[in-house]
Each structure stands twice: as C-alpha cells, then as structure tokens.
Design a protein around this nucleic acid. Structure first.
Lengths: 217, 217
DNA sequence: TATTATTTTTAGGCTATTCTAAAAATAAAA
DNA sequence: TTTTATTTTTAGAATAGCCTAAAAATAATA
C-alpha cells in the first residue's frame, strides 16, 4: 500500500503537526528526515497526489484525514513493538527505538491485532508516549514529570525522559518500571527531593531523578 | 550491510543449493524469485563482486562460505519469527510465512539473540524445518512423516506437511502442536491407520492424517 | 519600497532494482 | 555435425528515492 519512505514521511509530518499547529514546512520535514528539502518537495507532491496530504507550493503541507490515519497506524505499530521489546525481550528503554523503527513497517493487520492483545493492549510505550488506538485516535498525553507532583499525589510510571544506562539500572534496582505505581509521601521544597512509595518500599530520591521520570496521573 | 533484495537472493540460492547439488542456474533462481532471468544475472554479478558467491557466465552460481552464512542467518531469523508468531501470537502454522518473510529482514543481532532465548532456543520452525544455529549451521533434517513410524516408536511433532485450516483445527482439538510428544501404540497395515498416544489421551488416526504430520525421532 | 536573505521549487543526474528485446552461448535433436 | 531449441547475457529503458545547483517565491531588513 505504502512504501517505507512514504510511511516515514507521513509519520514525521504527523509528529510535526502535533508539535506546532498549522501547515508543516518543507524545511522542517527535511531536517527531521535528515534529507534535503528538494527531496521533501518530491515526496510531498507524491503524497499529495495520493491524497494523503494537502500541499500548497511554498506554503507547506497538512495531512488529510486519511493521511493522519495512516501515520497514526505506523506510530501505533512502532510503540506496540517498543512495548514488546521492553516487556517481553527485556531490552532497556533506550535500546528499542532503532529496532522499532524497522518493525513499524511490517505489513499485517492481523499481526498488530494479535500483538496488541498479547501485550495486554497497553496505553503507553516505554517512553511514556501514548499508543494510538486501532482507529488512529491518539489520547492527548497527560504525562508529567514526577517532579511536578505534590505531596500525597500518586500516579503510574509511564516512561523516562533521558535514559542513560546508569539511570535505567537504578530504576531496575528500585523496582520501578512502566506501570509501576508511585506515590509522593514527602517533598522538600528546598532542593526538590522527594520521599516516594513504590510497592511497599519507601525511599528518598533526588530532584534530578524526579525530573527524569514521566508519570501518568 | 545487505539490501532486502540481496538477502532474498542469497536465501533463495541457499535453498536451491540444498535441493540439488552443484551450481544453481540463473533460470532456477529467476523462477523461485518470480523475476526475469536478466534481473538475476544483474544481481548475481553484484553478489559475486561482494564475494557472496562464485559466478561463472553461463555456468551458474555457488555460494561462498560467507554467502552461505549470510543466507543461513536470514533463514534463522525467518524461522525464529515463525515460531514466535505461532507459539506466542497464536497464529496458525499456515498463516505465518508472509509475515516472517518481512520480519526476517529486521537488522539487529541483539534482537535475534533475545528472541531466540525468549522462545527457548527452538530447534524447529512450525513447519518442522530445522532452524540454523547462530553460526549458520543447519542441522540435517531428520524429520519423517508420522506414517513412517512403527508400533511403539515415538517422536516429537515438528510440523505439518499441508496445512489446510480444517486439518489445523483437528490438531488443535486433539491438542497436537509443535513439541507435542506422540507415541504409536498400534498400526494397521491394512490401511495405515494408527492408534497414537498424545499426553494421556490415546486415539485413532487415519493414514491421511499420519501422512501429514512431521515427526522428529 | 527596494534590497537582501531565506525558503522552496525546479531541472537534471545518480543508484538500485527491475523490465523488454535482441544477441550470444550452450545443449539437444536431426 | 549441422540445425534447432533453450538458456543466459547484454543493451537500453523505466521507476523510486535521493542528490546538487540554479531559479523562483517569500520574508526580512534597510
């Protein structure tokens, strides 16, 4: 149906539309695709012919409803595969992007239906980003940094911001992973450090760590 | 490292070499690849330059050691993914080929190491074909049809020959799948029918069914 | 507003892979 | 062995996707 290149363009344009309203500029696409603007013009014209987006010379592009659906579908696949890689194959959160970048292009509706079920229809990927549903609907992300929570608030860990190996190892040690419930028992205004409850353990974490964990409330 | 097309050619040539000794002809490759002989000549020359095979004009080609290794690796990936699709995602044995055909090209050594471990390092794919090991060594297949077993012999089900949905449903009902141990309790010379033991159940099967199940002894 | 800078597009090429048609080599048949 | 048939290769062209360089449109500045 769509080539690998086409899918990648649609995906990138979808992301860019979410990052800033209105038309997406040729240069913005080129930069994100790590390609030249002239190549973007070519592809964008091709996708416009396929009615995946509306393209106005010198004005930028905007996905059509269909285009948005196709893009969301690629993103859905990407994020589901990331969950698979982390949850089942025990990859770390920062090792999965490249592989998912390839897996997202595997064509089989049935595969994704089954993969989704197998993973328990997850709502978020390992980076805390929401997974579009079968219809391409992307839940508005409400994730915040743990550091933004107040005393006695709680939420579920949905991802990490930066994922250096040391940090991920720390999380492993503290038994924090995606889906883990975290409650803030205390917060020090002075340095932003916190006391949190994870399972039955409570412990101290620095502001730096609280700034690196995404929470869904 | 290798393009999708290159990997497919190497894989096909690998299979053809196993089917008949000696050089593989251009036409044979073309037929299996569902492409034109002239296209094959082009690609084969390219792969020869890359030292993946030895090509002699009008004489055919033969994989080099390296070429064989690369091909076996693609086949290993294909078959591991087939196991995943059947064992984990509960696809039927006859639905997985097309999808595995895509998955076999995902590039990541680590992925395959982990997938293999996750699946318990299976030796056979859902069709009973052996899975090459990490070093590209393909165990000589010793699978036979269940109908070839004698009374009191037993083995493990490693695949099916033809896989119509009705047959697969029959196997489901009888709780026979890959890895299932089967023992022949009795065999009727007259019509080839058998009484077999599967788990704690013993039941009658026709010759037709015994001819359709591959067994590893 | 005129000029300069930036962005975007067009024109023309390059590479990988495929194809068709014609030529060359090999194999089979008379 | 000569002729015919088959196989294989070469030559030339198409397509997708990318590139560079130059032209055109738009935006920013004087």
């Amino acid at each position: 149906m769509f080539t690998l290149a086409e899918e990648n363009y649609l995906k990138i344009i979808f992301h860019l539309e979410h990052e800033s309203q209105g038309e997406v500029s040729t240069n913005a696409i080129a930069e994100r695709m790590e390609t030249k603007p002239s190549s973007v013009t070519d592809m964008v014209q091709k996708l416009a012919e396929k009615k995946m987006l509306v393209y106005k010379r010198y004005k930028g592009t905007q996905l059509t409803e269909t285009g948005r659906k196709v893009a969301a579908d690629v993103i859905r696949k990407h994020r589901l595969w990331e969950v698979f890689l982390v949850e089942k194959l025990k990859f770390h959160w920062d090792e999965v992007h490249e592989i998912a970048e390839q897996l997202e292009h595997i064509q089989s509706e049935e595969l994704i239906i089954r993969l989704d079920k197998y993973l328990g229809s997850p709502q978020f990927d390992p980076h805390g980003d929401p997974i579009p549903d079968k219809n391409g609907v992307l839940k508005r992300t409400e994730k915040k940094l743990l550091s933004a929570l107040e005393k006695n608030q709680s939420g579920v860990c949905v991802g990490v911001k930066e994922s250096e190996p040391e940090f991920l190892q720390y999380l492993d040690k503290k038994k924090i992973s995606i889906g883990t419930k975290i409650k803030v028992l205390g917060k020090e205004f002075f340095d932003g450090s916190m006391i949190i409850l994870v399972g039955n353990d409570q412990f101290f974490i620095s502001h730096k760590i609280a700034e690196n964990l995404y929470i869904q409330t």
